[in-house]
Simulated scan of single mutants.
Amino acid sequence: MSRFVRSEREKLANLFVTLGPDAPTMCTGWATKDLAAHLVIRERRPDASLGMFVPPLRGHAKNTLRSFAAKPYQELVDLVRNPPMWSPVSNPLTEGLANTLEFFVHHEDVRRAQADWHPRELPKEDQATLWRNSSMIARLRLRRFPATLLVQAPGFGEVSTGAGGERLRLVGAPGELAYFLSGRQRATRVQIDGPSALADRLRNTPLKI
């Protein structure tokens, strides 16, 4: 199991316990019990997980989410904490790729919905892991953005993406960039340099898969 994923999973499970089932998250309409249910379904119910991408299955996905969210909360958190080895997304071959951003972002979804949140000071190794993932996501999700976009994580690297044209620069720590590129632009602490209209467009562009 990826050390970083294991650490984020454990910290998120502990935070779920601390906050209880009805605490807010950054995921619209979801309390902590709903987010925990989502994570469990993603790893244990691929039939329901397909509902995020296949419209005819959305009703099944919503019903499954409600069913899992209604489970005893501690049981639900224990399922988050202890993933099945057979899961398509949490087995040793796929977990690093499939779960690095999943667990970091959802950990931040819970942290940043609380009134006293503050950016974490992550070890350099963890920041490097997040940058590797963020740089790939930047190329994928921003390749059609109507500008020449330079994404920079000082001390870790930079990538150029976008469809060309006017220049725009997105600068931040790897964790902030990871959160930004996951569609949470308004809840991140990054710097955007360039034409204001393009900067506003970047802040409001849907970036979720």
Rank of each mutant, 00 (worst) to 15 (best):
F16I: 07
D22T: 15
L39T: 06
I41L: 15
F16K: 02
M26K: 11
L35C: 05
H38V: 06
D22K: 09
G20R: 01
D22A: 04
V40E: 12
A13S: 12
K33C: 09
D34E: 07
K11I: 09
L19W: 06
L12I: 02
R44K: 14
N14L: 05
L15C: 04
D34H: 15
T25G: 00
V17A: 05
A36R: 11
P24G: 04
D34N: 14
P21L: 05
T25L: 10
L35M: 11
L19M: 11
L19G: 13
G20I: 03
F16Q: 00
V40N: 15
I41H: 08
K11C: 11
C27Q: 09
W30K: 11
R42Y: 00
A13Y: 14
P21A: 01
T18G: 01
A37K: 05
V40W: 08
L15T: 02
W30S: 00
A23N: 13
E43L: 02
L35H: 00
L35G: 04
L35Q: 12
A37S: 02
G29C: 04
L15S: 02
T28A: 15
R44E: 15
L15Q: 13
V40M: 08
A13P: 10
R42C: 09
P21H: 02
R42T: 00
A23T: 10
T18M: 12
A31T: 06
E43H: 07
L35E: 00
R44I: 08
P24F: 12
A23I: 12
D22E: 12
V17D: 13
T28M: 06
G29Y: 09
R42N: 09
G29S: 04
T25E: 08
L35I: 05
N14C: 14
T28F: 02
T18S: 09
L15D: 07
G20Q: 08
A13L: 06
L19V: 06
